[in-house]
Amino acid sequence: MIKKPNTRSMIFTLYGDYIRRYGGEIWIGSLIELLEPFDHTEQAVRTAIYRMGKQNWLTSRKETNKSYYSLTKQGVKRMDEAASRIYRIEPGNWDGKWRMVHYSIPEENRHIRDEFRQELSWSGFGPLLNSVWVSPNELTSQVYDMVERYDIKEHVHLFVSENQGPKTDLDIIKQCWDIDFINERYKLFIEKNENKFIEDKKKIELGEYSEKDCFVKRTMLVHYYRKSLFIDPGLPKELLPNKWLGEEAAKLFDKYYKILEKPANIFFEKVFAKGYE
């Protein structure tokens, strides 16, 4: 049995896949209605929205008796970064350089240190040593954003370097990430969805799914596929193993997404428009 996604996580999915494409703002009544098919109550949505505001992901405005919520600058950056990885089909090329982050955040700020590590991991860094994280991708701006957000400038060093051995670049990859585990996750995604894609494609063509059905299916497809961001650093093609399934999974996701896209948008737009009537 698949565990129901938490409300905050689902709100991020809706902002990333829908709301940001429609001006980035939504009436909370529409948001509550959009989350109802996923068994999230009005109270759960309001609580999650409140907490996301406190965490500087969302900002609000009131117009007459309606409250509208939009992404903050920090939220927009996070959604743009996520989108660039979710909807990417082929891995990028490598410039041969490593980005290395070294930090020494005091013990009294352990909560900041823990959050900083989570942010590094989400962005695509891997732990080479306890307080030294590396990435083969150009993530300089992301690091500076994190440093500014947590106000830890005096505790962080960022280097751009080349590996001179004796370990190879592929050895570094194996040390920092469990590539076999990531590949297995992509294998499971493919096995779970390749037959479902064929079945759903036929049902859509026969008109057996409503626009709401397609909205639910597309939202859940994106939600679970984007979970790969938490474990896949998005390595360039030069550093991937020969039997890499990430590209195959991305192509399947893209095909599946496209058959659901138009009817799902129609349903979303109907609900979204209620906030501006």
Score class of each variant (00 low, 15 high):
72 T>I: 15
106 P>Q: 10
199 E>M: 13
172 I>C: 07
117 R>D: 06
64 T>A: 14
151 D>I: 14
244 W>E: 00
54 K>Y: 08
202 K>F: 15
95 D>Y: 11
168 T>M: 03
33 E>H: 07
7 T>W: 09
144 Y>H: 10
149 R>W: 12
39 D>C: 06
162 E>D: 04
159 F>C: 00
212 K>W: 15
252 L>H: 08
153 K>Q: 15
192 K>Y: 09
196 K>G: 02
35 L>M: 07
199 E>T: 11
43 Q>H: 09
38 F>K: 00
260 L>H: 10
152 I>K: 02
135 S>W: 08
141 S>E: 15
265 N>S: 08
78 R>W: 14
261 E>K: 14
28 I>A: 00
171 D>W: 08
132 V>W: 02
27 W>E: 03
243 K>D: 12
130 N>V: 13
205 E>F: 10
23 G>H: 10
268 F>K: 02
178 D>C: 05
43 Q>I: 14
161 S>P: 02
139 L>C: 08
145 D>G: 12
38 F>E: 01
176 C>R: 01
133 W>I: 02
75 G>I: 13
37 P>I: 12
11 I>R: 07
273 A>M: 08
276 Y>L: 05
222 V>Q: 01
187 K>C: 07
258 K>W: 10
119 E>F: 09
191 E>D: 14
156 V>L: 06
111 H>N: 12
249 A>S: 08
270 K>N: 06
133 W>M: 02
102 H>K: 11
246 G>I: 04
55 Q>K: 11
152 I>L: 10
21 R>M: 09
156 V>A: 06
81 E>D: 15
189 F>A: 05
237 K>G: 03
10 M>A: 04
192 K>I: 07
155 H>E: 08
8 R>T: 10
120 L>I: 06
232 D>S: 05
267 F>P: 00
213 D>P: 00
134 V>F: 06
243 K>Q: 08
2 I>E: 09
188 L>N: 07
119 E>A: 15
240 L>C: 03
173 I>W: 05
41 T>D: 03
118 Q>I: 06
104 S>N: 13
41 T>K: 11
11 I>C: 05
126 G>I: 05
168 T>G: 08
58 L>K: 05
100 M>A: 15
12 F>T: 04
86 I>G: 01
194 E>N: 07
150 Y>A: 01
220 M>G: 04
59 T>I: 11
232 D>I: 07
185 R>W: 09
52 M>S: 04
30 S>F: 12
126 G>D: 05
220 M>V: 09
269 E>M: 13
11 I>L: 09
235 L>I: 03
39 D>V: 05
4 K>E: 07
253 F>H: 08
177 W>E: 03
195 N>Y: 12
52 M>N: 01
202 K>E: 15
15 Y>R: 04
215 F>R: 03
261 E>Y: 12
87 Y>T: 00
35 L>I: 01
137 N>Q: 12
37 P>C: 06
118 Q>G: 15
178 D>H: 10
117 R>A: 07
147 V>Q: 08
106 P>A: 10
208 E>A: 10
90 E>I: 13
268 F>S: 01
158 L>I: 03
201 K>W: 15
19 I>G: 04
132 V>M: 01
